[in-house]
Design a protein around this nucleic acid. Structure first.
Length: 478
RNA sequence: GACCUGGUAGCUCAGCUGGUUAGAGCAUCUCACUUUUAAUGAGAGGGUCCUGGGUUCGAGUCCCAGCCGGGUCACCA
C-alpha cells in the first residue's frame, strides 16, 4: 500500500518499535510514516549481487561528472574516494599544526601572477580600474610572510591556470604550499617522505598502496636521483659540459623537437620530460635542476649551474616541487632579468618581475625551504585513480545548454486547466514544447500517475482532454 | 589545436551488407503471488536512434557539417 505511493529517492521519516524478523533481519514496526521529500526523477537502479558483480551500473563519464550528486548516491566507491581526499587534507593539517606551523590565507586575486610559469585567467576590478589575475601560485606571498618573521607557514591554495585539460590537469586545482625557515631541501625531502608515509597509513592503514598495475610503496626513505644522473641513465647523454648547441644536438638525436626560443634549461627539461619522467613509478626525488629552469631557487652549494631543487615523481607524474628558497635579493633580481630575456626571445611562459617581492627580499629573508604538493594528484595516487576528474567533485566541463523553462501561465495557451498548470513542471514538463513533444498517451499516463502518487486534489485527466491540447496548440501558433 | 573513438528507452547495452511497425535486461505502471539479500510470474506503457543537411525508392545504419563526451598527442618547467 505504501509501496504504491513511494519511489526510489524519496526521504521518509518513520516511528515505531525495532524488532527482528523470523529470519533475523533488523526491522521497525512502523506506527507512523511521514514523507519528508519526494523524488520526481528516477535514480539509476544499480544492483550488486552476492559475488560483488555490479549490474546496470551508472558509468557514463559525462553523466557521472555533470550529475555528481547522482554518481555519489548510486556509486558507493565514488564516495569513498572523496572521503579519502578529506582524510588526506585533514591529516596534513594535523601533522603541520603539531609542528607549530601556521595555516594562512593569501590573495587569490593578484595584480602580478607570480610564483610559477603559466598562462593566467584575467579579470578586471571596476573600482580600481585595473586588470587582476587569478593566482597561478601563492609562493611569493608565503615567502613574504617568512620575511615578516613567521618560521613556518602553509596554505591550501586553489590555483588557476588557463591551459589545456587532460587526465592530470584541471583549470583549477589545489596545491598545498609549505615554507619553513632555517631548513634546506634535504630536510624537506625527509619531511615529505615521512608525511606521505603517514598519509598512506591514515587512508589505508598500510604504506603499500595499489595503483593501476603497480603497488606503490609510500614507506620512507625514497630514492634520490639527480637530474643529471636520470638523463644519463635513460638517454646516455651527460648534460654536464654540454652548452646550448650541444644540448640541442642531443635532443635532436633523441627525436625531440626543439625551437630557437628554448634555452639550456628548457632543453634539459625536454630531455627529462620525454625520456625519463615516466620511468619513475615508485616515489623518487629528482634533485638538482639547472639554474635557468628554476628562477626562484637557491644555487647549489657545490654544483655550479645547478639549484637545490627537487621534484617528487610518483607513477611517472610530478606530485611535488620543492626548493631551498632563493633568498639572495641580488641573485633573485638577476634571475628575473634572465626571465625577461627569455620572454623577449619568445618564451611566453617566462615569469613576470615582481618588484615588491624583490623589495621584501632586500629586507632579509632567512634561509628557507619550501614545497608545493599537488593535492589532486596526491589523492589520485592514494585512491588508485588515473584521472583528476575522479578526485574533484565537480571537474570542469563544457557547459550544458538548457531550454529556458516557462511560467505556469504559458501552459494555459494549450488549454491546460488552471488547476493542472502548476503541476506540469513538477511532473517533468517544463515547457509547452515538452508536452507537445511527447505523445498524448504518454502525457496522459504520466500526469495521472503523478496525480495519484501525490494525491493531488484535482480532477483526473481523460485521454480526450489531453489530446485536445494538441489541436488547441495548432490554432494560436499559426 | 590535431588525430582516433563514441552518443539508440530512466540506467546498461544489442541492432549484420541500407530494407516492413527499432529490440533486450534492469527500472516504471497494472494484476497475481507473500517468497528478503541484483533477478517470483503474467501483462502494459515508455524512443527527436545527439542536431542539421545530403545520397537513396528507402537511413539508427552511408556522406558532410555542427554539438557534447572519452582516449592519444600537442600545450602545461
Amino acid at each position: 500500500m505504501f509501496k504504491k505511493l513511494l519511489d526510489r529517492g524519496d526521504f521518509i521519516g518513520i516511528e515505531g518499535e525495532t524488532f527482528r524478523t523470523q529470519v533475523g533481519e533488523p526491522s521497525v514496526k512502523v506506527t507512523s510514516l511521514t514523507v519528508l521529500s519526494k523524488a520526481i526523477r528516477p535514480l539509476p537502479a544499480v544492483k550488486v549481487d552476492e559475488d560483488g558483480n555490479v549490474h546496470d551500473a551508472f558509468t557514463d563519464p559525462e553523466l557521472r561528472y555533470r550529475q555528481r550528486y547522482v554518481d555519489l548516491v548510486v556509486n558507493p566507491d565514488v564516495k569513498k574516494t572523496f572521503v579519502a581526499r578529506s582524510t588526506i587534507i585533514r591529516k596534513i593539517r594535523e601533522v603541520f599544526d603539531a609542528k607549530g606551523w601556521m595555516e594562512v590565507d593569501t590573495p587569490v586575486l593578484q595584480s602580478i601572477p607570480g610564483g610559477a610559469a603559466a598562462r593566467p585567467f584575467i579579470t578586471h576590478h571596476n573600482a580600481l580600474d585595473i586588470p587582476l589575475y587569478l593566482r597561478i601560485a601563492n609562493e611569493l606571498y608565503l615567502k613574504r610572510l617568512i620575511v615578516g618573521g613567521f618560521d613556518g607557514v602553509y596554505e591550501f591554495s586553489r590555483n588557476f591556470r588557463n591551459e589545456g585539460m587532460d587526465r592530470t590537469h584541471n583549470p583549477e586545482f589545489t596545491v598545498m604550499e609549505l615554507y619553513v625557515a632555517y631548513q634546506d631541501y634535504h630536510w624537506m625531502m625527509e619531511t615529505t617522505e615521512n608525511l606521505f608515509g603517514e598519509l598512506a597509513q591514515a587512508v589505508h592503514g598500510t604504506t603499500e598502496i595499489p595503483l593501476g598495475e603497480h603497488t606503490i610503496n609510500f614507506a620512507p626513505p625514497y630514492a634520490r636521483v639527480t637530474m643529471r644522473d636520470a638523463i644519463l641513465e635513460h638517454t646516455g647523454v651527460d648534460i654536464d659540459g654540454l652548452d646550448e648547441a650541444g644540448l640541442r644536438q642531443a635532443c635532436k638525436a633523441q627525436g625531440i623537437e626543439t625551437d630557437d626560443s628554448m634555452g639550456r634549461g628548457k632543453l634539459i627539461d625536454e630531455l627529462f620530460g620525454e625520456k625519463c619522467e615516466h620511468h619513475y613509478i615508485q616515489p623518487t626525488f629528482i634533485m638538482d635542476y639547472p639554474t635557468d629552469m628554476s628562477p626562484l631557487t637557491k644555487v647549489h652549494r657545490d654544483k655550479p649551474g645547478y639549484t637545490e631543487r627537487f621534484e617528487l615523481m610518483i607513477n611517472g607524474t610530478e606530485v611535488a616541487n620543492a626548493y631551498s628558497e632563493l633568498n639572495d635579493p641580488l641573485d633573485q633580481r638577476a634571475r628575473f632579468e634572465e626571465q625577461v630575456k627569455l620572454a623577449d626571445r619568445g618564451d611566453d611562459e617566462a615569469m613576470f618581475i615582481d618588484h615588491d617581492f624583490l623589495r621584501a627580499l632586500e629586507y632579509g629573508m632567512p634561509p628557507t625551504s619550501g614545497i608545493g604538493i599537488g593535492i589532486d594528484r596526491l589523492v589520485m595516487m592514494m585512491t588508485n585513480q588515473t584521472s583528476i576528474q575522479e578526485v574533484l567533485f565537480f571537474p570542469q566541463m563544457r557547459p550544458e545548454s538548457f531550454e529556458t523553462s516557462a511560467g505556469n501561465a504559458d501552459f494555459s495557451s494549450l488549454g491546460v486547466p488552471e488547476a493542472w498548470a502548476e503541476h506540469l513542471v513538477a511532473a517533468g514538463f517544463t515547457t509547452p514544447g515538452d508536452v507537445l513533444g511527447a505523445k498524448p498517451t504518454q502525457v496522459h499516463q504520466r500526469l495521472n500517475g503523478f496525480r495519484k502518487k501525490n494525491k493531488l486534489d484535482v480532477p483526473a485527466l481523460s485521454l480526450e482532454e489531453v489530446t485536445a491540447w494538441y489541436s488547441d496548440a495548432e490554432s494560436p501558433a499559426s
